[in-house]
Write a protein that binds this DNA or RNA. Structure first.
Lengths: 346, 346
DNA sequence: ATTAGCACTCATTCGTTGCGAGTGCTAACT
DNA sequence: AGTTAGCACTCGCAACGAATGAGTGCTAAT
């Protein structure tokens, strides 16, 4: 059987109606709102579309619902990329830069804006730092026996830990430690640094060596690990309450319990392809996601640091709109990194 | 009418049963499980208790439910503080210090542990820093036109911002800026620092002055504000799904939407009394909280920095247990601050 | 090939009924 | 006097069934 012009139009109409109303759509509705023929004709065509796997029947006597195959066809072939209006773009930019002073902040805002616009659950992942190289290492005394260990990477990411020393250290010792660490670690990526042991380089200085080994090194490792971690921001979790697919409390519960496992989510996101990726229902390997669709996009910075953002929602979603927004957001974020934030304070 | 011995016992029994089952409790149940007389007697007593305002009737033909007044009486007079068993204490300590290397981390863990033990929604607020004094101010070059502005307070709290300069700065200029800022700001509290303008102190150095005014000062203010911010951690949100009071999706929704407004929650928490505070249902000024109870406790550090933690749940909760856990947690946190973390790695 | 007509299906709504847990009252008992 | 047994009554709730109506599939006419 062939996907004739009319069949395509009917399918599109069914998808559009169903995405809007979440109700199975009947032949009369289509017939009334589109010039595609009488209800009976539509019915025949729908019956064909069902046979072809694009529509399903919740039960004999109710309207048709698009199948995942239909959404896939729509996304691949029928969806026109919806250019955002200037107002929408402005709203995004405004929301994005509001109250932002750090990269983390910007990513958090991105998740927020994304959830507000799409009315879905949005997430954003901070850039991975596998390729970041250490630039500075500093030890700053806070009091007698406490110092702050501070690492700066070449991308400007900073991370610090308060370190409790087992005995007081002279400023001199701290300076030696910091200098030696900077000398040996700078230029190395964070994960490289994790594998290098510089304890031997202190050979002449027993005090510095002991202090490094007992106090600094463990904190150093923790701080590196902390820097390597990506953060996951989520927003719009409660948006799902507005969706009829989650009017059953158990559905809602399952959803919340799933997205609450942040490390799982992070894993799943990281492993997704670059660029815009849309997975529909069962296309998600994950059982738990099998009645959700996920749209993600990747933002790049200087061609090296990458992070992801996207939305998760029911398979019934406005794929065109969400895709456009997600794409526009990544462009904006990449741009923001080029010209660091906060300069043109309007 | 008098609250006789037996009335008290019956009231306590009703509370215990209702807290456990969430079902209105009838006279027969009490009569069977406690040696307090026949159903009819219990009924008469219950009727009196209702007249006195300690019990209510959902409808004529169902069992009794404790009123807020009853919970209040229970909390004030009848509740025996439940000493935690050694296993419970161990479990708390274990959960608390797992994977902790920063204060923020510890507080986050506290919320986690608290929600796990109580099966309620828990929150924890990082210590306020109004009394923190600036100790160090540092400017570290990252690249040509980017520096990291780093502030350290006397409590060891560190905050940094990447600052994009409008033109390249010499190391010399940066050193002058940092030195001058440290000189003028150190010893001042964070909020004092926000009010002091040191622009005039650069009078001899036009370059440093311009750089301070255009690039550093705005970031400095943002960083101070960031340091002044307290963070709110929440955990166990999905626990409410297990409670029958939230089996209605709208209740659940309202709850989630309320706790999602983090700044509101933070405000409400901060304004609560020190020590252990229990508010039951309508005692919460807040309309939204009127069918919740909130238990908070304050942890102190060196008698100056304070934060709060607690739980929020239905009025039907195990007040004794929750109170004990909350109290024990605050003690533990205070202790942890005394002897900074990570030293005794078992 | 399209469409009107019609019988049929099935989820949903709404009223009815029966059940059972629990009360309140009265009268008997201690 | 306080306690208890007995009993009529209330009321939420679940189960059942009829009515409703949206929508289909099929057949026959256009």
């Amino acid at each position: 059987m062939d996907l004739t012009e009319r069949k395509l139009k009917i399918l599109q109409a069914v998808i559009a109606d169903f995405v809007r109303t979440a109700e199975p759509v009947g032949s009369r509705t289509i017939s009334k709102n589109y010039e595609l023929g009488s209800p009976a004709t539509i019915r025949n065509e729908m019956s064909d579309l069902e046979e072809m796997g694009y529509l399903t029947h919740p039960h004999t006597s109710s309207g048709r619902v698009p199948s995942e195959k239909a959404y896939r066809l729509y996304v691949n072939e029928m969806m026109s990329k919806r250019e955002l209006s200037q107002e929408e773009k402005d709203a995004i930019a405004k929301g994005l830069y509001e109250n932002v002073n750090e990269l983390e902040n910007l990513i958090e805002r991105a998740a927020h804006v994304l959830s507000e616009i799409t009315n879905l659950t949005a997430f954003a992942l901070t850039p991975g730092t596998e390729q970041d190289k250490l630039k500075y290492i500093n030890l700053l005394p806070v009091d007698e026996q406490t110092v702050v260990l501070m690492l700066v990477s070449d991308s400007g990411k900073v991370s610090n830990t308060a370190v409790r020393l087992d005995k007081p250290a002279s400023e001199e010792t701290l300076r030696i430690l910091a200098k030696n660490m900077t000398y040996n670690y700078s230029g190395k990526t964070l994960s490289e640094a994790l594998t290098i042991d510089i304890i031997k380089t202190f050979k002449e200085d027993a005090e510095a060596m002991a202090m490094f080994e007992h106090s600094i090194a463990p904190s150093f490792i923790r701080t590196l690990e902390d820097m390597l971690n990506v953060n996951l921001y989520m927003d719009g979790l409660t948006n799902i309450f507005a969706l009829p697919e989650y009017s059953d409390i158990n559905k809602a519960r399952t959803f919340f319990e799933m997205v609450n496992r942040k490390s799982d989510i992070t894993q799943k996101l990281i492993s997704r392809d670059d660029g815009i990726m849309i997975t529909i229902g069962g296309e998600n390997q994950d059982e738990e996601l099998s009645d959700c669709s996920v749209i993600t996009a990747t933002y790049h910075v200087d061609g090296k640091m990458v992070g992801k953002l996207g939305v998760i929602g029911p398979t019934r979603m406005k794929y065109d709109e969400v895709t456009s927004v997600v794409e526009y957001l990544t462009e904006n974020i990449s741009k923001a990194f080029m010209l660091p934030e906060g300069e043109d304070d309007d």
